[in-house]
C-alpha cells in the first residue's frame, strides 16, 4: 500500500458517500445517471468475484464489501425507492449502456493477462469501468443545472483513478516486475474521459459560477 493508492481509495469512497448522502438525505437523484450506477454494480460484481477465494487484507476485503454494498443500494434507491425514483429523469438518461458491455466483454476475451474465467471477468470489469461514466457525462450535458453534490460526486469519481495512475507509476519504480499494461491503459483512458469535465469543473470553481457543460 502507498499513499497514492490510499488517497485513491479514500477519494473513491468519498465519491460513493457523497452520492449516498445526496440520495439518502435529500431523497433526490436528480442529475444522476442510473445507467452509470448499474454499470458500476456490474463493474464491482465482476471485479470482486474473488472476494471469497483470494484474501489480500482486512482493508481490501472491507473496501470491496463497501463498494459492492453501496453500488447495489444506490441502484436499489434509484429504482425502487418511491421518493428517490420520482426525481430520476428517465427521459434524459437514455444512453444505451448495455451496448457498452458487448465491446468490453469481447475485448476482455481477446486481450487479457491469463485466459481464466476470473481473469477475463476481472479484465472485463476494468474495461467496463473505463467507460462506465459515459452515460453520466451525457446526462450532465443534457441537464442544465447540475447541483453541487452531483458535481462533487463526478469530480471525486474521476479523481480516484488519477491517484491510481500515480500509484501505478510509484509501484513500477519501486517493485520489480510490476507491469500491468491492461490496467494502466484502461485506467488512463478512464481518467482522460473526465478531462473536459475537470476543465469545466475547474472553471466553475475559479469563476465561482454554477457548473455548466456546453451542450
Amino acid at each position: 500500500m502507498n499513499i497514492f493508492r490510499l488517497a485513491g481509495d479514500m477519494t473513491h469512497l468519498a465519491s460513493v458517500l457523497v452520492l449516498l448522502l445526496k440520495i439518502h438525505t435529500i431523497k433526490s437523484c436528480a442529475g444522476v445517471s442510473l445507467k452509470t450506477q448499474e454499470l458500476y454494480v456490474i463493474v464491482f460484481a465482476t471485479r470482486y468475484l474473488d472476494i471469497f477465494t483470494s484474501f489480500v487484507s482486512i482493508y481490501n476485503s472491507l473496501m470491496k464489501l463497501i463498494f459492492l454494498g453501496s453500488s447495489f443500494s444506490i441502484v436499489w434507491y434509484m429504482r425502487y425507492h418511491k421518493a428517490v425514483h420520482r426525481t430520476y429523469d428517465r427521459e434524459q438518461d437514455t444512453f444505451r449502456h448495455w451496448f457498452l458491455m458487448l465491446p468490453c466483454i469481447l475485448l476482455a476475451l481477446l486481450i487479457h493477462e491469463k485466459f481464466t474465467f476470473f481473469e477475463v471477468m476481472w479484465t472485463f470489469s476494468l474495461y467496463l469501468e473505463a467507460v462506465a461514466i459515459l452515460p453520466q457525462l451525457v446526462l450532465l450535458q443534457r441537464t442544465r443545472n447540475i447541483d453541487n453534490l452531483t458535481g462533487q460526486y463526478i469530480f471525486l469519481l474521476g479523481g480516484y483513478r488519477g491517484f491510481y495512475i500515480l500509484n501505478w507509476i510509484y509501484r513500477y519504480f519501486t517493485e520489480p516486475h510490476y507491469v500491468h499494461w491492461i490496467t494502466w491503459i484502461s485506467g488512463l483512458v478512464q481518467t482522460l474521459l473526465y478531462a473536459d469535465f475537470f476543465y469545466y469543473y475547474f472553471l466553475s470553481w475559479k469563476n465561482n459560477k454554477k457548473l455548466q457543460l456546453p451542450a
Binding site: 483470494s54 493477462e113 510490476y178
Partner: peptide, 10 residues
C-alpha cells in the same frame, strides 16, 4: 486462499 498476483488493488 490464493492471492492472484497483481490483483491486490481494488
Amino acid at each position: 486462499l490464493v492471492t492472484e498476483p497483481g490483483h491486490d488493488e481494488l
